[in-house]
């Protein structure tokens, strides 16, 4: 008997078909500012297979010869449903692009999507501008994706009661609508033991089995001001999630790191990558986060933290 199973192939199926003439996906998307209506874009009219997860490639690409995509905070929701009846199933995938940075690398989204689903995408953008012609790719992963189980529930933990539809948020200080703002120890302290735990969720809504923690770094008002650090230098931010009652918190995720670059000419906000990981958080658990930074500037010692939860 052969010792392999022919059914153990996971198939990656590009949901945005390639345009061989232009070396990029066929369909582009328009990201509208938070003051504008956020319309749904049909991504797939009807999925033809059961997908056990999605693989996102979001470089915020634009056509060759066009201007590069402006720096900013781009995000989107994925939805199911017929036209006019779309329902969010994955909310607030934030992609940040400052003036010198590409968007996301690959991100695995462990959602189960049955055959016959109309899959839609609702792109949004911080501020009031409208940026058209943004390319991204989404793969449906099918026929078993055993490396990651797939789930049927998602919510963004730590949103502090704010809407998952960012159009209701403050278009300037929108970070407040993304997650829970916490203040980091001042003076560039890198002593994690001195960093207090901050509650981001008092009651986990369901048994969570996979999380994607996200950290967003910005000033109280807006951008981290590069001029506050030596030119061409870096500043590091670290954060992690924990669980437990007050005074008895325990870390549950690795200490995740993000470094930003300071120069005399660039300012910006920054979002961490999306390090998804299996992680069990029981329903009802109190969830906390803590963070440190090497940035000694008082105005820059803020992070907004949330987590995509799947279960």
């Amino acid at each position: 008997m052969a010792d392999w199973a022919l059914t153990d192939h996971a198939i990656y199926e590009a949901l945005n078909p390639g345009d061989a003439v232009n070396s990029r996906p066929t369909n582009s998307y328009t990201f509208r500012g938070t003051s504008a209506s956020q319309e749904w874009n049909e991504f797939v009219a009807t999925t033809t297979k059961d997908y056990h997860g999605l693989w996102l490639q979001c470089p915020l690409g634009r056509d060759s010869g066009a201007a590069s995509s402006p720096g900013g905070s781009y995000f989107f929701n994925l939805g199911f449903g017929s036209a006019g009846n779309e329902v969010d199933v994955y909310m607030g995938h934030l992609i940040h692009s400052n003036s010198n940075r590409l968007g996301d690398g690959g991100t695995h989204i462990p959602l189960y999507i049955p055959a016959g689903t109309r899959l839609t995408l609702r792109p949004q953008l911080k501020g009031t501008a409208t940026i058209a012609g943004i390319f991204l790719q989404v793969f449906g992963v099918t026929n078993g994706f055993h490396a990651h189980k797939s789930f049927s529930r998602h919510y963004r933990m730590g949103t502090d009661g704010h809407s998952d539809h960012f159009g209701n948020g403050d278009p300037v200080n929108y970070s407040h609508a993304l997650g829970t703002r916490i203040t980091l120890p001042t003076g560039g302290s890198q002593d994690l033991g001195a960093a207090p735990w901050h509650e981001i969720e008092d009651f986990c809504l369901f048994d969570t089995k996979y999380v994607i923690p996200v950290g967003h770094m910005c000033r109280t008002s807006n951008d981290i001001e590069s001029a506050e650090g030596p030119a061409n230098s870096g500043r590091s931010y670290w954060f992690q999630l924990g669980i437990g009652d007050k005074g008895d918190e325990q870390p549950i995720t690795p200490l995740m790191h993000h470094q930003i670059f300071l120069s005399s000419s660039w300012t910006g906000e920054y979002v961490s990558s999306h390090p998804g990981q299996p992680c069990y958080i029981a329903r009802g658990q109190r969830v906390v986060a803590r963070a440190i930074t090497s940035n000694a500037d008082v105005g820059d010692n803020n992070m907004t933290i949330w987590a995509h939860c799947f279960g």
Binding site: H9, I11, Y12, A14, N16, P17, G18, R24, P25, Q57, P59, L60, G61, R62, S68, S69, P70, G71, S99, N100, R101, L102, G105, F135, L136, Q137, F139, S265, W266
Partner: peptide
């Protein structure tokens, strides 16, 4: 087994040559 994988490389908005390297 993988088709239409997509990457994009963009310039620097500062107008200068830049280490804008794909991940």
């Amino acid at each position: 087994i993988i088709e239409d994988g997509y990457l994009n490389l963009q310039d620097s908005a500062t107008g200068t040559s830049d280490w804008n390297v794909g991940t």
